[in-house]
Amino acid sequence: MSTPDQPTDAREKLSAHFQGDSSLHNQKWDALWKEGFLPWDKGFPSPALVDLLADRKDLFGSVTEGKKRKALVPGCGKGYDVLLFSAYGYDAYGLDVSETALEAAKETERRMEGDETYEIKGVEKGSVNWIVGDFFTNDFWKDVEGEGTFDLIYDYTFLSALPPSLRAGWSARFKELLAPQGKIICVEFPTYKPHSTGGPPWALPPKVYLGHLSRPGQELPYDEETGLLESELKEPGKDRLERLEHFPPKRTHQIGYNADGKVTDWVSVWAHPNAL
């Protein structure tokens, strides 16, 4: 499937660039930032996230004066979503493996000062923090204040950038970093790609999020052609994360629409079972 936002030649370049040893992917992402090859950058926050935070305060509540909460955006890129969480009162942390990406994020922060998209949406604005680090290690914790968990963790295009071999680690890490009463937001993308087409972005139908976040840390069975084998999954255990909401957003980035103008992305919200 070709779209105006990410034409076939861009996807082919990404696929070729990430062939080989997955342990080198961090350096390869940084190389793309240094080259300025950024087909994933849309220039503004995800419309699905904008609407979710504005319309579903019942899920997230509001930050009261003097009580700060922390939000994490792994693979934050230029940081549009980080700035949005700050506007809602979260102390927002944008994490990326590329220092070049975070220099661009700092420029976004300067350039967007006073933009109505990032006007204060709560009692007070939260802090904005840019951290170079690897989501799968604890090295970045030296730059995070407070306890070692986050009240909100956001994923849009981060999981799609990771090869399927890292999905068990991704889900385990989300569970580990989520505060006891915290929430995870996933804007599920790309849901329309066949698994066999590879990536990045890797195919992510809703069954992948449900399979992995319901079974954090477990290696799940995949078929090279069809993807996740749902029929072979075991029942989720006590260490699961629970899906609270799952729905197609009213709006999303253009790349999340099909040729008929229908939204193909989904939004899911997750929590620890004891937080329900």
Rank of each mutant, 00 (worst) to 15 (best):
Asp21Met: 08
Leu229Met: 14
Phe44Asp: 11
Lys78Pro: 08
Leu38Val: 06
Ala172Tyr: 03
His17Thr: 11
His272Ser: 10
Glu235His: 05
Leu241Glu: 01
Trp141Phe: 13
Pro221Ser: 12
Lys42Ala: 13
Val267Asp: 00
Glu147Tyr: 06
Val63Lys: 01
Gly114Ser: 10
Tyr88Met: 03
Pro194Phe: 14
Ile153Thr: 03
Gly122Trp: 07
Ser165Thr: 09
Arg69Ile: 01
Ser62Lys: 14
Ser15Trp: 12
Lys193Asp: 02
Gly122Glu: 15
Tyr80Thr: 02
Pro221Gly: 10
Gly89Ser: 08
Cys76Lys: 02
Lys125Val: 03
Asn129Phe: 04
Ile120Met: 14
Phe60Lys: 04
Tyr192Ala: 13
Glu35Lys: 06
Thr191Ser: 11
Glu188Arg: 10
Glu65Gly: 08
Ser231Ala: 13
Ala104Lys: 02
Lys207Pro: 03
Ser268Asn: 09
Asp41Glu: 14
Phe189Gly: 00
Lys78Val: 13
Thr117Ser: 06
Val269Lys: 02
Ser127Asp: 07
Ala48Arg: 00
Thr252Leu: 07
Pro206Asn: 07
Glu103Val: 14
Pro273Ala: 06
Gly20Cys: 08
Asp55Gln: 15
Leu244Phe: 05
Pro7Thr: 09
Pro248Asp: 08
Cys76Trp: 02
Glu145Leu: 10
Ser171Val: 06
Val82Ala: 06
Ala48Phe: 00
Asp239Gln: 10
Thr157Phe: 07
Leu14Met: 09
Leu276Gln: 05
Pro248Arg: 15
Phe140Ile: 07
Ala172Glu: 11
Lys142Met: 06
Phe136Trp: 07
Glu145Asp: 14
Phe136Ile: 05
Ala87Pro: 05
Ile131Pro: 03
Gly66Cys: 07
His25Asn: 15
Trp40His: 08
Tyr154Trp: 06
Leu84Ser: 02
